[in-house]
Structures are given as structure tokens and as C-alpha cells.
Amino acid sequence: MKKEYKTMCIGEKLADAASLPKDVVMGASVVTVLGSDEVIIENYRGIIEYTDSLVRVQTKGKQIRLCGKRLQVEYYTNDEMKITGCICSIEFCT
């Protein structure tokens, strides 16, 4: 636990200490998974790749990789996007 705390940046530590939501302070992405067929991603930078079996979304610092079948973007706005389809995996890659 201590080690983890040491690796955190100042902003993160501040957010942690002040109990502020990290998505607001740090711009961390919010990934909401509803069952296995609906994912809502907030706080992202943009789509890097999109096919019906793979969606790669760039967030601040990391990429979110969604693998599945028949993937479809229900809506795509500046703030959030909703992906539906048969989702097999969600990965965070650097």
C-alpha cells in the first residue's frame, strides 16, 4: 500500500487526500460496463481504431482496447461514447 502511494504523482495524492473525484481532477477515463454488451467511456481523447471486432480508444496516458464481436458505436460525442455488441475483453495498454 505504501509503495503504491509513493508511485502516485502529486495531483493524484492531492485528489486522494481531498477525496476529490479523479476523473475531474486528473482527467481519468470513466469506463462503465453494463453486462457484457454495453460499455460507456467518458473522458477520452479519441478513437484510434475501429472495426467490428476491435475498438481502440485513446485516453489520457493509456489506451483502452475493447475486443468483441459486432461492435457498434451507438453515439459518439466530445464527452462520452457508447459501444454496444458482444464484448469479450477490455484492456488498458500503454
Binding site: G46, V73, Y75, Y76, N78
Partner: peptide
Amino acid sequence: FLNLCSHHKIFIWGLAP
């Protein structure tokens, strides 16, 4: 193009490859 659309606040839905 998609990212520019979202950047310019052009609402897109039903996106399918």
C-alpha cells in the same frame, strides 16, 4: 474524421463499420 467530428461537437450516432 470521427475525432474531428466530436471535437467540433457534431453529434454522431449509430456508427457501424
